[in-house]
Structures are given as structure tokens and as C-alpha cells.
Write a protein that binds this DNA or RNA. Structure first.
Length: 764
RNA sequence: GGUCAUAUAGCUCAGCGGUAGAGCACUACGUUGACAUCGUAGGGGUCACAGGUUCGAUCCCUGUUGUGACCACCA
């Protein structure tokens, strides 16, 4: 490419961004030679194969790419593990919708047919995601990309499950779980959003057994009353003292339940008497356990309708909503409903399905998280694993110290199928392969054809939790483990970080990562969360198309203030584009000056005061970035780039070069500019690599080492004074006018400064 | 109800125990070697409020209020 190319053109990222990326691809691969003491590795949080990337992805990948490029350019053995997550429920939902558009009903497809369709979807989604990551400039070694359901990973997931089962940390149990009535699967309590709604509190009279008295129960869920096992009151509640120990009769049945005392009963809430329905309420489940009351589920296995012989006939087989209505009508007619109070209360909704979550007794697989949590807490407490910003460790501790057994089974189709088989008599065989399971069955005198495979799949986060060591378990990758830094959002501290820590510590006895940098959430310019339903989503591809990937990256970097969410508007990107244009134009100017960009540093005469000054600023810039990287202050880096390039290099040094017009000083300008490009490369890789190539055909991004350079501080101070003087004189010119006496006097006043610009240069 | 943040210029945000900062927006001027996707200069702030510590507080402490997030409750 001819040198003159840059001079005549304006900054246009579209003309080179893709090209620069493709030409750098090889340099992204980790170096073959090992240097175990000096490596840097990051696990890219694998995006879901559900669709396109949003600005949050752009943020997290930009920050990771900065870290990766920074270390790589300094010769550190660097690895960034790319990959994709199969995202069980989310992907299944997306694929079902996608099929629906094609006129296919997912439920009409066999298991194998459906799974084949999901793989089809995955292939196209993966291509689209990686294309977007590349457009953003992600410098990941794509040939090492992994997928949470690729062959090797699937095998590891099964192995991990079997080992945990054999170690007694995974078990199957009948428990009350959060049941999504639409998806018909258990889901995690982390996937539930409580929504405040207007509801009613119904006061219902239960007759006291062998008496004409009644006791009033307040409930928001009358339809579950047939699953009641007790009524509870507070032991200090005078109103009910005489009833304690007696029995109440559930309306429309002849079932008698005891009236007990329990701390759960709050004298100030409702009627003071609460029904205990362990099979349909988490609190009641605990109360039931305390008093050994057992549990009675009155719902069908889908959680849709009342279906139990304990339910009076007029409600049996009736869908929940309707059942409530019918029951209330009956209660009203029979004068058992004595009061209806309008209240506001929180109702649990499934995040993914958007339907009401029903606590339901089901048999599920659980991982003994409380046992695994201890070590994970320990490594954070001891500082082996550090959170940035530090405050997030509190969030982590809060959750970890109250962790519940983790329900890892899901009743969906897409995911890792649990490697368990059932014999006709109900025994469970857990083995890595079907062959082994059959062997085991034979020993139990069970014919292979009688074995039934578990259809449940594992929670997506179970496999994600294995990500650190499964991706890093080859001979080649081992040198990058434990990884250096994890960059991610706070929203998956529980989902992902905690699980990775527990599982990695268990299987490898090692930490998965040393630093955890928690970045902000990207919101819109009004501080609202971006969501499709609000229509305030900004597509990163569109921004990159208009302003360039560098501008987007620079914007996200600039806005990455720790502990504060990002309010993101398009204007920010425009401003960034303008700054990058400034960098471009500075290069254009230098090029017109016939500057040699490749004079080795030791052949430049740096004795001049102005040279000493700009070099001191360059060193300050470089050291500043090194410090910022250590502290994950990405915002500072972006800020420094502006201060150095605009305020110091362009506004003063280039202006000085214009006056001085000395070949050596010009070449210093070329050198300093090139160093700026290298130091800024991690943030804005496209434009810097393109300019370096245009100006000097230089591909070496390693910044110059200034550790042996001695700066004359007196010279620097002299120039600082000069800068201040220039500003002062300019101010007078504006205030008083160019012909004013004061201005002329100030301009010619060298007594204060005692050094003219010319003098400074003449010392060169 | 609990926890953690947060409050600085019109807006978005840095910052610091000692004269208050940037970008955008605004105003004026400017196309005299790159840059109007720009330059130069300027206006604009009781640093939420009230106490306390201190020679000195925007900064540290306590409380109040506002805002946000998370967790819990959810009869």
C-alpha cells in the first residue's frame, strides 16, 4: 500500500476493519514454547446458542480482549478459551419457536428428531455468534473453541456425574421443588422472579372437631386446603390457646387435622392461624418436617389440576384457576368464607416461561452443594481467589453460606441426559455407559430390555460448572490452569462462578481462576435495563457498522467504571469515533511531514527539552496503563489515551514540531506516535494495526522498554511551565484582545519564563 | 424486613483530608502546514441534608432522605 493512501482519506473503519482482523488471526494462537511462570489465561464465558449477541456481550468480550491483547503484545504466553453453551431450557424454547414458524410442532417430533433439529439450529447460531465476536475484534484462538455438548465435554459431564454419585454427593430424592407448569420441569430458585401483584387473602372457617366452634384460617391459596396437614397458631396467641391440641376438619371432607403451635405462625398476619400445606408451600414444608406431619400433594404430576382422592369430587380434575373459583363459590354459599381482604403479595414467576411457578413434590436429582461450598468459601476468604471490585465477595458469601441442595435434573429434552437406569423393581444404576449399566443389571438378574433409561437431563449450569478444568485438561492447555482472570457480570455469580468454584475445587483440588472481575450491566441512556419487550435494545452490530468496532470498544472501555452500571447511548459511540478520527488525523499530518517512523529509538537524539517532556508523558502513559490493567480500571485507560494523544501529543508536541521543523524532533514525533498506537492497540486494535502497517509496515506490537531511560526532570518542568504560560497568554489574548497592551506585554514577557520556545528547541 | 451500592456542573461520570475535574451540551471566536468527525477561549457546582472527628471535610465517622440492585418474606 502506498504511503500517500492515508493522507487523502478520512477515517473509515469499514475499509479495513475486517481485513486487519483476518491478517492477525495467526498471532492469536498461544505460543508453542512453554513458560510456566508467565502466562495469562481467560475463560470466555460461553454465550448461549440462542441467538444474537447484545451489548452486554460486547462489553464483556471487549474487556477480555483488552486483557488478552495487552498480555500477548508484551510477550506473555496468553490463552483465551472460546466456546459456546448449549443452554438447555433457553435453547429448547428458541428452537421450539423456530420450528413453530416452520409449521412444526416440537411435541410431534421424536426425541431423536427433535435433538437433530436443535443441532441444526446450533450450527447456524454458532456461526452467527462467532461472526459477531470476530467483528468486534475478539482475538481468540478459534480453533480451540469448545461447546458444552461436544463429544469430549459430554463425556466429562457424564464422568463427573458418576463420580459425584459414587462419592455420595449426588442423590435422588422426593422434595418440594419449583415447578414450571408451562415447561413442565423443575427449575432453580435462581430462575424465579417474584412479581408483586394484587391478590386476595381469604378468611375461611374450619370447623373444630366434636364442637360447634370454628377456627378462621387466612390463606391466599384456598384450593390447596385439601393438602393441609395441620393448622398452626402462635403459642403466645391468647385467641387460640384453648384450641391448641384439638382438631379441625377440612371443609367438604371429613379429614381431621391437628391445631399445633409453630413459630412460623405470626399473630399479626391474617387471622393468626395458618394452614400447613407442606406439599404446596416451602415454608409449610419446613413446618411439616419440624412436626413430622408428612405431606399430601393434591395436584396432578404436571402441576395443572387438583387430582387426588382427598379432593372433594366437585373439584377433582379441575384446573387450578377454575378450582379456586368454584371452591370460593361453595365457601361463600356455605358461609364458610367470612372475609376477603385485598392485599399485595409476591407471586413467583418462571423467568424463562413467564408462568406461575408451582411448588410441587417431585423426585429429582440433587447435588450436595452445602458440602461442596465450604472449600469455595475458604479460597475467597483466604484471598486465593479475589473479586474485583472487592464488594462482590459479600454477595458471594451470603449465598454460599446459605446454599441449598442444588436440584440438577430438568424434565426437558435438550441437554446432557443423566446416566442412570432403573430396574423394574425401582433400583437405580448409575454408570458411565449403557454397556456398564447392562453389566450391572445382569448381576441383579435384570434383563437389558427391562432397563429404563432416565430421561431427565442435567441443569445447564452443571456442565458450565465444569468449564474451567474440562477445557484445560489436555497436555497442551494444562499450562494455562488455573486461569488468571474471569471477566463476567454479577448476574451469574451464583449461577456460574459459585458452581465453577465448587466443582473445580472438588475435581482438581485447585482454584479455577485467581481474579474475578465483575463488570457492569449495560443499560440504556435512561438507566433502564435493555430488553426486547421495552424496545430499547441497541444492536452492537449496527453500532459497529455505523461507527466502527474500535469506536464501540473504546466507548465500552471508557464507560467501564467499577461498581456502576453503564448508561449507554449512541452519542457515546459517536464521541469515541471522533476521538479515533483525531488519532487518524494526527497520523495523516505526521505522514505529510516526511517523518521516518522506523528510526530505532537509540538512534534518536532525545536530549531536547521538548523531547524529554513528551517522552516523560509517554512513559507516564505507559506506566499508567500497566497499573490500570492490574487494577482492572479500564475507564482510566481510555481516559489516559485522550489526555496523552489530544492534550499532550497533538495540542502541544505536534504544534511544537510545526515551529521547530527539525528532522530529529519530527522523527521523535513519529516514534512517539507509533508507541501510542501500540499502547492503545489492546483497546482499539483495528485502527492501530492498520495505521502501524500503513506508516511503517510494522507488525511488532511490543511497546518499547523505557526502564533504562533517564528523564531530565528539570527539562520536563521547564516545558510544563511553558505549557502553563502558553495557556495564560492565550487567555489574555481572548480576554483583552490581540492588540491589547496586556497581551503584547505578556507575549513578550520572558522574565517569568526565561525560555522561549525557540530556545527550548535549540538545546536539542 | 436484611444486605450492598450510590448521591459531585444541564447530562454522563472521574476525583481527592488542603484553590473543584473530564467528556457531552451551552456561549463567543476561528477554516494562517493533520483535524468542522475540528481548534481556541468562556460561562456554569453550598460536591443530597444534618451532626461529629480535624488546624482544615466534597473526601473520614454517625444519622436522615432520595435512588438502584440483590437476598428474604410471601398464610
Amino acid at each position: 500500500m502506498e504511503i500517500s493512501d492515508i493522507i487523502s482519506t478520512r477515517y473509515d473503519p469499514k475499509s479495513f476493519e475486517k481485513e486487519v482482523y483476518e491478517s492477525s488471526l495467526d498471532s492469536f494462537l498461544p505460543k508453542p514454547e512453554k513458560n510456566l511462570d508467565n502466562y495469562f489465561s481467560i475463560l470466555m464465558p460461553p454465550p448461549n446458542v440462542t441467538g444474537n449477541l447484545h451489548l452486554g456481550h460486547a462489553l464483556t468480550y471487549t474487556l477480555q480482549d483488552i486483557l488478552v491483547r495487552y498480555h500477548r503484545q508484551r510477550g506473555v504466553d496468553t490463552f483465551w478459551q472460546p466456546g459456546l453453551d448449549h443452554a438447555g431450557i433457553s435453547t429448547q424454547l428458541v428452537v421450539e419457536k423456530w420450528l413453530e414458524k416452520q409449521g412444526i410442532k416440537a411435541s410431534d417430533l421424536s426425541y431423536d428428531e427433535f435433538i437433530a433439529k436443535v443441532w441444526e439450529w446450533k450450527a447456524s447460531s454458532a456461526t452467527s455468534i462467532i461472526t459477531q465476536q470476530k467483528a468486534l475484534g475478539c482475538s481468540a484462538p478459534w480453533k480451540y473453541s469448545r461447546f458444552t455438548m461436544d463429544e469430549g465435554f459430554s463425556k466429562s459431564v457424564i464422568d463427573a456425574f458418576v463420580q459425584l454419585y459414587k462419592d455420595g454427593l449426588i442423590y435422588k430424592a422426593e422434595r418440594l421443588v419449583n415447578w414450571d407448569t408451562k415447561l413442565e420441569t423443575a427449575i432453580s430458585d435462581l430462575e424465579i422472579k417474584n412479581v408483586e401483584e394484587a391478590g386476595s387473602l381469604w378468611y375461611i372457617n374450619y370447623k373444630i372437631s366434636d364442637s360447634d366452634e370454628f377456627i378462621t384460617v387466612a390463606t391466599t391459596r384456598p384450593e390447596t386446603m385439601f393438602g393441609d396437614v395441620a393448622l398452626a397458631v402462635n403459642k403466645n396467641d391468647e385467641r387460640f390457646k384453648k384450641l391448641i391440641g384439638k382438631y379441625a376438619v377440612i371443609p367438604y371432607t371429613d379429614r381431621k387435622i391437628p391445631i399445633i403451635t409453630d413459630e412460623h405462625a405470626d399473630m399479626d398476619k391474617g387471622s393468626g392461624c395458618v394452614k400447613i400445606t407442606p406439599a404446596h408451600d416451602f415454608n409449610d414444608f419446613e413446618v411439616g418436617k419440624r412436626h413430622n406431619l408428612g405431606f399430601i400433594s393434591v395436584l396432578d404430576k404436571h402441576g395443572h389440576m387438583l387430582n387426588d382422592e382427598l379432593v372433594p369430587e366437585f373439584l377433582r380434575g379441575v384446573y387450578l384457576k377454575k378450582a379456586r373459583k368454584i371452591l370460593l363459590e361453595h365457601l361463600t354459599n356455605d358461609k364458610l368464607l367470612i372475609k376477603t381482604e385485598n392485599i399485595k403479595h409476591f407471586v413467583p414467576y418462571g423467568e424463562k416461561s413467564g408462568t406461575v411457578i408451582e411448588p410441587l413434590i417431585t423426585k429429582q436429582w440433587f447435588l450436595d452443594a452445602p458440602t461442596l461450598a465450604g472449600k469455595a468459601i475458604e479460597v475467597v476468604e483466604s484471598g486465593k481467589v479475589k473479586f474485583y471490585p472487592d464488594k462482590w465477595k459479600n454477595t458471594f458469601f451470603d449465598w454460599m453460606k446459605n446454599i441449598q441442595p442444588w436440584c440438577i435434573s430438568r424434565q426437558i429434552r435438550w441437554g446432557h441426559r443423566i446416566p442412570a437406569w432403573y430396574t423394574p423393581s425401582g433400583e437405580i444404576i448409575v454408570e458411565k455407559t449403557e454397556e456398564e449399566a447392562i453389566q450391572k443389571a445382569k448381576m441383579l438378574n435384570v434383563a437389558p430390555k427391562d432397563l429404563r433409561r432416565e430421561t431427565d437431563v442435567l441443569d445447564t449450569w452443571f456442565s458450565s460448572g465444569l468449564w474451567p478444568f474440562e477445557t484445560m485438561n489436555s497436555e497442551f492447555m494444562k499450562r494455562f490452569f488455573p486461569t488468571t482472570t474471569l471477566v463476567t457480570g454479577f448476574d451469574i455469580i451464583f449461577f456460574w462462578i459459585a458452581r465453577m468454584m465448587m466443582l473445580t475445587l472438588y475435581f482438581t483440588k485447585n482454584i479455577p481462576f485467581k481474579d474475578i472481575y465483575i463488570h457492569a450491566l449495560v443499560r440504556d441512556d435512561k438507566g433502564q435495563k435493555m430488553s426486547k419487550s421495552k424496545g430499547n435494545v441497541i444492536d452492537p452490530l449496527e453500532l459497529m457498522n455505523e461507527f466502527g468496532a474500535d469506536a464501540l470498544r473504546y466507548t465500552l472501555t471508557f464507560l467501564s467504571v467499577p461498581g456502576r452500571d453503564i448508561k449507554f447511548g449512541r452519542d457515546n459511540v459517536k464521541i469515541s469515533r471522533n476521538f479515533i478520527t483525531k488519532i487518524w488525523n494526527a497520523g495523516r499530518f505526521l505522514q505529510t511531514q516526511g517523518i521516518k517512523f522506523d528510526v530505532p529509538f537509540n538512534q534518536l537524539n532525545t536530549d531536547g527539552k521538548i523531547s524529554q517532556w513528551i517522552l516523560s508523558k509517554l512513559i507516564e502513559f505507559k506506566n499508567g496503563i500497566e497499573n490500570d490493567i492490574k487494577e482492572y480500571r479500564f475507564d482510566y485507560i481510555a481516559h489516559r489515551m485522550q489526555v496523552f494523544l489530544r492534550d499532550q501529543f497533538c495540542d502541544f508536541f505536534i504544534e511544537a514540531v510545526k515551529i521547530q521543523n527539525d528532522e530529529n524532533t519530527k522523527n521523535i514525533a513519529g516514534f512517539v506516535y507509533k508507541e501510542f498506537l501500540k499502547l492503545s492497540n489492546p483497546v482499539i486494535p483495528f485502527v492501530t494495526e492498520h495505521l502501524l502497517d500503513l506508516l511503517s509496515h510494522n507488525t511488532d506490537l511490543r511497546p518499547t522498554d523505557f526502564s533504562t531511560l533517564k528523564i531530565n526532570e528539570t527539562d520536563v518542568k521547564d516545558v510544563e511551565d511553558l505549557v502553563a504560560w502558553v495557556h495564560e497568554v492565550r487567555g489574555i489574548k481572548h480576554a483583552e484582545g490581540a492588540n491589547s497592551e496586556k497581551y503584547v506585554k505578556s507575549k513578550n514577557d520572558t522574565s517569568k519564563l526565561n525560555k522561549s520556545l525557540k530556545e527550548l528547541f535549540s538545546l536539542a
